[in-house]
Design a protein around this nucleic acid. Structure first.
Length: 498
RNA sequence: GGGGCGGUAGCUCAGCGGUAGAGCACUCGGCUUUUAACCGAUUGGUCGUGGGUUCGAUCCCCACCCGCCCUACCA
C-alpha cells in the first residue's frame, strides 16, 4: 500500500459528513445495532398491493423498516425520503406533527446514503404510493461519502467493476444480474440433486494441474516446501470420486487459468462439472438440453431469450452436428468430399494463415478450420460432436472410429458453453495418452498435460463406464442476463491494481 | 502483442490555444402529500502523469499510466 491509499482522501462533502459524525459521537451516538425491522420493502408492497388509502390508513398498521436513504425531499415542516433495502424501495414521510420539531430537524441533517431505521404506520399518498408515516426514525449508520448522481447512477465501467458496492447501490440492473446468477446456481443445484447427484468440493490447489489444457497459476506451500498449482479443472478428482463409488457427482466452483483476459475470459471463472456412471455422452446432451431449458424458464420466465438483440431459442431441440456437417451447413462450399481431403483442408488453413504441423491428423485440421470459420456462427444452440482423439486426451474413443471420440461441445450465441464426453476408462489407453502429452510438454508445449500417476492408479482400480461434462457458469449467466462481457456477471472481476 | 475510443468537481457530462462550465450532490434560506420534488443563494477543480511546442496549454505534439471495446493468443 502506498501513502496515497492509506491516507483517507477528503473533499468538502466528506469533511462535512465527518463533522456531522463527530457531533453524533459527542451526543452519545455509537453505531447502534438494536433496531429490528418487521418487513422488507417488497413485502409491504406485496402484502398491501391493491389496498387503497381508505382501507389502509384507518387500520394503523405498524411496521419497522430499514435501509439506505436514496432520495430525500424536504419541505420545511415535513419530508419525504426513499429507503432502499435488499428487496427494493419504500417511501417514508416524516412530519413535524408526528415526530416533533427536534426529530424532524435531526432527520433533516441525515444525508443521502445514510442507513436509517424507521417505525410508523402505512398509508397511501394522493398519488397512490405506499408510504410509512414515521413516528420514530433512527440513524443506524452514517455514510461519509456522497453517493453517485441519483438519476444516472454509476456509469463509468471501471468504477462499476472496482467499486461494485456502489454499482449495486445505484444500479438496479446490476442487482438483477447477480440475483439471476444466484438463482441459476441454485436452480442447477436443485436440478442435479433431484436427479440423485451429490455435490462435492475437490482441491483448488493441485500438485499436478490436470483435466484441461491451459497454463496454470503457480504457488508455493511453505511447510511442505512444494510447488502447487491453482486448479485449471476439477475433472481428474471428480473421476477419482466416481472410482470411489460416488456414481453421480458434481462440483460448482472456481477454475484458474493463467491466460488472457477478454469479454469472455476472466482468470478465475466458475465451472459446473458433473459425472454420471452408466451413462454416455448422448445421455449428457439430453440432460444438458433439459437443464438449460428449465433454468432459463425458472430465472428469466422463458426459454426464448434475446441476446444482444437476437433471439435465442432454447425451447426447440438443439442442433446436433459433426464438425464437418457444421462447416458444410454454414459454408456450403465446404462439401463433405472436400473436407475429407487433407490437401484441401490444409490449403484452406494456409489461406487463412493458420499454422499446423505436418503430422497433425485430418481430424485436428478439420477442427482448426471449424474453429476459424464456423464456431462464431453457431448462434443457435448446437452440439458439435465427433472430436478427434488427438485433441481429446481424456475422452473415450468412438466404437466405430477410434480416431474420434464420443465427445461434444455445446455452442450458443457463437460461444462455447459446455464440453462433455464419455469418459476414457481404459487405464492403459489413458496411460499411453498421458505419455504422449508428456512428450509434447517436454518438447515445449506449455499447455500439454502432465502425466498424473495417481490418476492412472485410480483408473486401474476401475472407473465404471461414465460420462462427464463441464458448463461455464459465467458464460451461461451472460446468456441469461443479456450481458455483453464476462465482467458484468462476476462481482469482482480481475483488474489491474489502482 | 496490434488497433480504436476515453480519463475535466464526489457523480453524470460539456468545453478544446487566452486565468475552468452545467446538472445532481453538499452548505444556507423558503415550502406539511412530494417522488429525478420545487424556488432562491452559495460552495466545490494540480482538467490521468511527465516532458515538449508557445508570450500563454485542459486544448497541439511526444512518452507513460489507467480503463472500455475490437483483434490476436488461449479452452
Amino acid at each position: 500500500m502506498t501513502d496515497k491509499n492509506t491516507i483517507p482522501d477528503s473533499n468538502a462533502i466528506i469533511d462535512e459528513r465527518r463533522q456531522k459524525l463527530q457531533k453524533l459521537r459527542e451526543s452519545g451516538w455509537s453505531h447502534p445495532n438494536q433496531f429490528r425491522r418487521t418487513h422488507l420493502a417488497a413485502e409491504l408492497h406485496a402484502i398491501h398491493d391493491g389496498q387503497d388509502n381508505a382501507g389502509l390508513e384507518p387500520a394503523s398498521i405498524n411496521v419497522a423498516i430499514a435501509g439506505r436513504m436514496m432520495l430525500k425531499r424536504a419541505m420545511g415542516k415535513a419530508s419525504f425520503a426513499t429507503l432502499q433495502d435488499m428487496s427494493g424501495r419504500i417511501q417514508i414521510y416524516v412530519t413535524k406533527d408526528a415526530v416533533g420539531e427536534d426529530m424532524l430537524e435531526t432527520f433533516n441533517q441525515y444525508d443521502l446514503g445514510d442507513i436509517l431505521g424507521a417505525e410508523g404506520t402505512l398509508f397511501r399518498t394522493r398519488t397512490g404510493e405506499l408510504t410509512v408515516r414515521v413516528n420514530h426514525v433512527y440513524l443506524l449508520t452514517k455514510s461519509l461519502r456522497p453517493l453517485p448522481e441519483k438519476f444516472h447512477g454509476l456509469t463509468d465501467q471501471e468504477l462499476k467493476y472496482r467499486q461494485r458496492y456502489l454499482d449495486l447501490i445505484t444500479n438496479e440492473m446490476t442487482r438483477k444480474v447477480f440475483t439471476v446468477r444466484s438463482k441459476v446456481v441454485q436452480g442447477i443445484r436443485n436440478f442435479l440433486t433431484e436427479r440423485g447427484f451429490m455435490e462435492v468440493e475437490t482441491p483448488m490447489m493441485h500438485p499436478i494441474p490436470g483435466g484441461a489444457t491451459a497454463r496454470p497459476f503457480i504457488t508455493h506451500h511453505n511447510a511442505l516446501d512444494m510447488q502447487l498449482f491453482l486448479r485449471i479443472a476439477p475433472e481428474l478428482y471428480l473421476k477419482r470420486l466416481v472410482v470411489g463409488g460416488i456414481e453421480k457427482v458434481f462440483e460448482i466452483n472456481r477454475n484458474f487459468r493463467n491466460e488472457g483476459l477478454s469479454t469472455r475470459h476472466n482468470p478465475e471463472f466458475t465451472m459446473l462439472e458433473f459425472y454420471e456412471a452408466y451413462a454416455d455422452y448422448n445421455d449428457l446432451m439430453n440432460l444438458t438440453e433439459s437443464m438449460l431449458r428449465k433454468i432459463a424458464v425458472e430465472t428469466t420466465g422463458s426459454a426464448r431469450l434475446v441476446y444482444q438483440g437476437r433471439e435465442v431459442d432454447l425451447e426447440s431441440p438443439f442442433d446436433k452436428l459433426t464438425i464437418c456437417d457444421a462447416m458444410s451447413r454454414y459454408h456450403p462450399a465446404y462439401t463433405a468430399e472436400k473436407l475429407n481431403d487433407r490437401v484441401f483442408v490444409g490449403a484452406e488453413l494456409d489461406k487463412l494463415g493458420i499454422g499446423f504441423q505436418k503430422d497433425d491428423g485430418l481430424g485436428k485440421l478439420q477442427l482448426m478450420l471449424f474453429e476459424e470459420t464456423t464456431e462464431q456462427l453457431l448462434f443457435k444452440p448446437t452440439f458439435i460432436i465427433n472430436y478427434p482423439a488427438e485433441v481429446s486426451p481424456l475422452a473415450r474413443r468412438n466404437d466405430r472410429n477410434p480416431e474420434i471420440t464420443d465427445r461434444f461441445e455445446l455452442y450458443i450465441v457463437g460461444r462455447e458453453l459446455a464440453n462433455g464426453f464419455s469418459e476414457l476408462n481404459d487405464a492403459e489407453d489413458q496411460a499411453a495418452r498421458f505419455s504422449e502429452q508428456a512428450l509434447q510438454k517436454n518438447a515445449g508445449d506449455k499447455e500439454a498435460m502432465h502425466y498424473d500417476a495417481d490418476y492412472i492408479r485410480a483408473l486401474e482400480f476401475g472407473l465404471p463406464p461414465t460420462a462427464g461434462e463441464g458448463i461455464g457458469i459465467d458464460r451461461l449467466i451472460m446468456l441469461l442476463t443479456d450481458s455483453p462481457s464476462i465482467r458484468d456477471v462476476i462481482l469482482f472481476p480481475q483488474m489491474r491494481p489502482e
